[in-house]
């Protein structure tokens, strides 16, 4: 159990999706103007990432990997479909986003209204596909590990966007050189935050 907890903490802080891998940057920079929308998008990302990574883990282990089709019979034992992983992962993500959207709309209309446009946008958030590809690359042994990794990655992403949004809200009242206002400053801020997060880099958990 301790192992899973370590995995979670490591993925929130040390291997943060934004500050260590720089994935999901576009929506991170574009949607971080106010804390309220940042919280909405952050929640949606956590949600989608926790659903898609375990599903893609199943795909990877029972369909794509070399020898993964063994359960169909010994004649399939040496089939390697891993070249299809991009296609299948992205199809799973797009389908899951669509499905989650419909489910939330039906059963939790309040949450649906709060997330609004962000839910469909998540299909092209690179941190989601990135998480699935990292899951494949790191070869997590069990579905529990994959799920905890996904939760850590999602929470780390949400944390990062909320931090940036809070800082940008404060900065609205500062006197910044005109051409630097908005986007330029957001980039520089993210750079500084990333340098701060590099402090976690040496920690062995």
């Amino acid at each position: 159990m301790e192992n899973l907890f370590d995995l979670f903490i490591r993925n929130v802080f040390v291997e943060n999706m934004i500050f260590a891998y720089f994935l999901g940057m576009c929506s991170y920079l574009a949607v971080s103007k106010t804390v309220k929308t940042a919280v909405g998008l952050g929640t949606a990302v956590i949600f989608v990432i926790i659903v898609t990574v375990p599903v893609n883990w199943l795909m990877e282990n029972y369909l794509l990997r070399a020898g993964a089709l063994k359960w169909l019979g010994s004649s399939f034992a040496d089939v390697d479909l891993s070249f299809l992983s991009f296609l299948l992962f992205i199809a799973v993500i797009a389908a899951m986003v669509q499905l989650i959207e419909m489910v939330i709309e039906k059963f939790a209309p309040a949450l649906y209204n709060a997330l609004g446009i962000f839910l469909p946008l998540i299909a092209v958030n690179c941190s989601i596909l990135g998480a699935s590809l990292f899951m494949q690359e790191r070869e997590y042994g069990t579905i529990a590990e994959a799920t905890v990794f996904a939760a850590g990655a999602g929470v780390g992403w949400a944390l990062a966007i909320i931090v940036l949004a809070a800082i940008r809200e404060k900065l609205k009242y500062s006197n910044v050189p005109e051409p630097l206002r908005g986007l330029g400053l957001a980039f520089i801020l993210t750079g500084l935050l990333a340098i701060a997060f590099m402090g976690f880099g040496g920690i062995e958990i």
């Binding site: 630097l180 986007l183 980039f187 520089i188 750079g191 500084l192 990333a194």
Partner: peptide, 14 residues
């Protein structure tokens, strides 16, 4: 390091 890339893009935008 990647953080410097962000800061450099910020300066390019500026």
């Amino acid at each position: 390091l990647p953080p410097m890339a962000l800061i450099t893009v910020g300066i390019i935008i500026w």
